[in-house]
Amino acid sequence: MKKVWLITGCSTGFGRELSTYLLAQGYPVAVAARKTEDIKDIVEGFPETALSLKLDVTKPAEIKTSVQQALDKFGRIDVLVNNAGIGYFGAVEESEDEAVRNMFEINFFGLANMTKEVLPAMRKQRSGHIVNIASIGGLVSFPAVGFYNATKYAVDGLSEALAKETAPLGIKVTIVAPSGFRTDWAGRSANNSPVVIEDYAATAGANKDSIRGYSGNQPGDPKLAAIAIVKAVESAEPPLRLLLGAAALKGARNKLELLKKDFDTWEETTVGADSPKA
């Protein structure tokens, strides 16, 4: 029996490609987006296996309704993919509180609330898989996206704790950390701070322009990412962290080296902070 998937943020990017691929492979899929007209073309032709859901992850009532609708149609939810998310460009000092808080509501709290709503059904089944779409920016930080990094670090931290809590219950967790992919993330799915401070032009400003200018030409293919995610979920031993893209792998390995350098260099000071044993 094929797993039942519920995927958020399916109007574009990973969500669109993943739901399209899964339905073509015969999987039952609850396809969610803020506007159902944006996913009409995905679900057409799959009356038995596709369910279109109107879902804004910042609205608890819509989360509750969507999960219940998926359970009513399919009887279970085997895989939840928390994909809905947005970006935001600005140096830390340039970033506006309202925009940052809105990004946290979508990228982190929306993901957390979706997870909490699905977990009771998975606990009852004693099986399930939570797939959280994070970013290499949840492991490695970059100028101009510090607060975006913060949302993804939060997703990573929550997911790792969740994996340890749910493993004895038969529920698995995978954090997907992509690098640059040809999605709308660096286009219409990310706003710029209107505040510009010239002192950050060579760091945050330069990186923002580089990312924006690269949009649409990233090496990552969302269709191949969808296949990779399904492969990981269907594997006997799925990874806790699934890096996607050569740049993600390179960035993560560089981060490991930097961490090791600091840890080793400051080992004596680190250990010396403990009280001597009596």
Rank of each mutant, 00 (worst) to 15 (best):
K3N: 09
I7V: 14
T8E: 08
G9F: 09
C10T: 06
S11I: 02
G13Y: 04
G15R: 02
R16Y: 09
T20S: 15
T20N: 13
Y27A: 02
A30N: 04
A30L: 08
V31L: 09
K35S: 10
K35E: 11
T36G: 02
E37K: 14
D38R: 10
E44H: 07
T49H: 09
T49Q: 13
K54F: 02
K54P: 05
D56N: 15
D56L: 15
V57C: 07
T58D: 01
P60R: 13
A61H: 13
A61W: 01
I63M: 04
T65I: 04
S66T: 08
S66D: 02
D72I: 10
K73A: 03
K73Q: 08
K73C: 04
F74L: 11
D78I: 14
G87H: 09
F89G: 09
F89E: 06
A91V: 12
V92T: 12
E93Q: 15
E94Q: 13
E94C: 06
E94Y: 10
S95C: 11
E98Y: 09
E98K: 15
V100L: 08
M103A: 10
E105K: 15
E105W: 06
L111C: 12
L111T: 15
A112Q: 12
N113Y: 07
E117W: 05
A121S: 14
K124E: 14
Q125H: 09
R126I: 02
S127R: 14
I130P: 02
N132A: 07
N132P: 02
A134D: 07
A134P: 01
S135R: 05
A144E: 07
A144T: 15
G146R: 14
A150V: 01
A150D: 00
A150R: 00
K152A: 04
K152Y: 08
A154N: 06
V155Y: 00
A161T: 15
A161Q: 10
L162Q: 06
A163C: 06
A163V: 07
E165F: 11
A167S: 13
A167R: 15
P168E: 07
L169R: 08
G170D: 08
I171K: 10
A177S: 14
P178Y: 11
G180R: 10
F181S: 03
F181K: 04
R182M: 13
T183C: 05
T183Q: 04
A186W: 06
R188G: 09
N191E: 11
S193K: 05
P194R: 12
V195G: 04
V195P: 01
D199F: 11
Y200L: 06
G205H: 12
N207D: 03
R212G: 03
R212S: 02
Q218K: 12
P222V: 01
A232G: 06
V233F: 03
A236D: 14
L240H: 13
L243H: 03
L244N: 00
G245A: 03
A248T: 10
L249Y: 10
L249T: 13
K250N: 06
K250F: 04
K250W: 04
G251N: 11
N254P: 00
K255M: 14
D262I: 09
V271K: 15
A273C: 10
S275W: 12
S275C: 05
